[in-house]
């Protein structure tokens, strides 16, 4: 049975169409990634699947139960991890776990809670107020809270936002472990390509409320990936001489050429331009798939700005 089955899901907020008829499925025990820029509909999808909001139309089954008609059965079987860390700072780790366990009607909660705290390396901090925890520790506590009742499916909404590199790598390992050891299916959303590539068996790229592509990272790279040739040039170039090789963008002494097989055309590209100072090839990656499918800019600076902007927005919320 599929852990998640989504059929033609639509969600409108007034005039705004957040989800425009998406369909996908997550197999039992699979780690599945929903990849897309902010506002693509990732969080809306998670909110529908966790029963926090109702779809306008379409159907979604989680663990075989309908999210609209059998919401409570769905909620019994899922764990949810938010992008912002939501724990009670005034309470201790154990108290946070106790409340979460009782909300799920777990009776032998103390035993399970202590097990999970040990598993996540938080045993020493069990009786300390969570407000004093580092972000990484809080995240691990949140994961422990999501696992207390032995869910079949974990929903993680941008789970590594705000974590440092070490904590992020650690978190990936945790996700892989719980997937392997507890057999939990994971549906995570992210806009970090690297994360999707590291963790997910399959990925759906979502953009403006529509699924642009579904497949394994390798499949997507083969199908939608592009190589980017980046030339540093001395003087402005005649773009029309490069267009036979692919889509071209020129800016600030740099020329970017999107092409399918960078190595094969590289020599010709360089020959077509006078005064090349340096050449760089960015091979096809989920990054370029993402850019290709979502129409995001190929200029690195702009992507960085987007990330900063997104971070600022998140901090403000």
């Amino acid at each position: 049975m599929d852990a998640v089955l989504v059929e033609n899901l639509v969600k409108r907020y007034g005039d705004v169409v957040a989800l425009d008829g998406i369909s996908f499925s997550v197999a039992g025990g699979e780690i599945f990634g929903l990849l897309g820029p902010n506002g693509a509909g990732k969080t809306t999808t998670i909110k529908i699947l966790t029963g926090l909001t109702r779809p306008t139309s379409g159907r979604a089954l989680v663990a075989g139960f309908d999210v609209v008609k059998e919401t409570r059965e769905v909620k019994r079987r899922i764990g949810w991890i938010s992008s912002e860390i939501i724990v009670d700072d005034e309470l201790t780790a154990l108290e946070n776990l106790e409340i979460q366990a009782r909300l799920h009607g777990v009776s032998n909660w103390r035993e399970r809670a202590l097990q999970l705290l040990r598993y996540f390396g938080l045993a020493d901090a069990a009786n300390r107020p969570v407000g004093k925890f580092s972000t990484g520790m809080r995240k691990r506590l949140e994961v422990a809270m999501a696992l207390l009742h032995g869910p079949e499916i974990l929903f993680m909404d941008e789970p590594t936002v705000g974590l440092d590199v070490g904590a992020r790598l650690g978190f990936w390992e945790v996700v892989r472990q719980i997937n392997r050891e507890f057999g939990v299916a994971v549906l995570l959303t992210t806009h970090y390509m690297e994360e999707a590539e590291e963790l997910c068996r399959r990925v759906a790229v979502i953009n403006k409320g529509k699924i642009a592509a579904v497949g394994t990272p390798d499949e997507l790279k083969a199908k939608y990936g592009v190589d980017v040739i980046e030339l540093e040039v001395e003087k402005p170039v005649d773009v029309s001489r490069l267009t036979p090789f692919g889509e071209v963008a020129a800016q600030d002494g740099k020329v970017l050429v999107k092409t399918r097989r960078a190595e094969e055309v590289l020599a010709d590209v360089v020959k077509a331009v006078d005064g090349v100072k340096s050449v760089k090839i960015k091979k096809s990656s989920l990054d370029t798939v993402f850019i290709n499918l979502t129409g995001a800019s190929i200029e690195g600076e702009q992507t960085d700005l987007r990330k900063i902007y997104m971070r600022v927005r998140r901090a403000r919320r």
Partner: peptide, 10 residues
């Protein structure tokens, strides 16, 4: 966001 945490449980 705590309300989301609670309402995502039964």
């Amino acid at each position: 966001g705590y309300l989301k945490r609670v309402l995502a449980t039964p």
